[in-house]
């Protein structure tokens, strides 16, 4: 329990106004007790109540009914971060319409390319290969 006196009560009223529900919970009971027993304390509260009454006149119109529906339409929220980046990249690449044929083509090339290379190597005459290697070898040993 805090030590409540007219000075502290005056500070409370100057800070939080005249409504005890706005006062710090740990000081509320002591302040109310002081108010019950002191005419000076009640005069302080009376002084503070004018400003609270003024503030309570600052009214605003309630939110329009459609706002709630608008906000609910925002759920689930749009993706953010890397997922958005990935989606945009995907769309940039043409999405499934372009990526699927490209993937199929790369699969086809991956499967066929080794056969084509093997076939090309088999078609090359052996003596040409030996001559080429010899030519490289001679160049390598030429001194400046």
């Amino acid at each position: 329990m805090s030590s409540m006196n007219p000075v502290r009560l005056s500070e409370l009223l100057d800070t939080y106004g005249d409504n005890p529900l706005r006062w710090p919970e740990e000081e509320r009971a002591a302040a109310l007790q002081l108010l019950a027993s002191s005419a000076e304390a009640r005069a302080l509260r009376e002084h503070a109540s004018w400003l609270d009454a003024q503030l309570d006149q600052f009214e605003v119109a309630p939110a329009r009914a459609q706002l709630r529906a608008c906000i609910l339409r925002g759920f689930p929220p749009p993706m953010i971060g890397w997922r958005v980046w990935l989606r945009e990249l995907w769309q940039e690449l043409g999405g499934w319409r372009l990526v699927t044929p490209a993937f199929a083509a790369s699969l086809f090339l991956g499967a066929m390319l080794p056969n084509w290379v093997e076939q090309s190597a088999a078609d090359l005459p052996d003596e040409d290969l030996v001559a080429d290697v010899q030519f490289i070898d001679d160049d390598f040993w030429v001194q400046p």
Binding site: D18, N19, P20, L21, L32, L35, A36, S37, R42, D56, E59
Partner: peptide, 10 residues
């Protein structure tokens, strides 16, 4: 003396 705790405003 009874001290009133005003009802919350709107």
């Amino acid at each position: 003396m009874a001290i009133t705790v005003r009802e919350p405003s709107s």
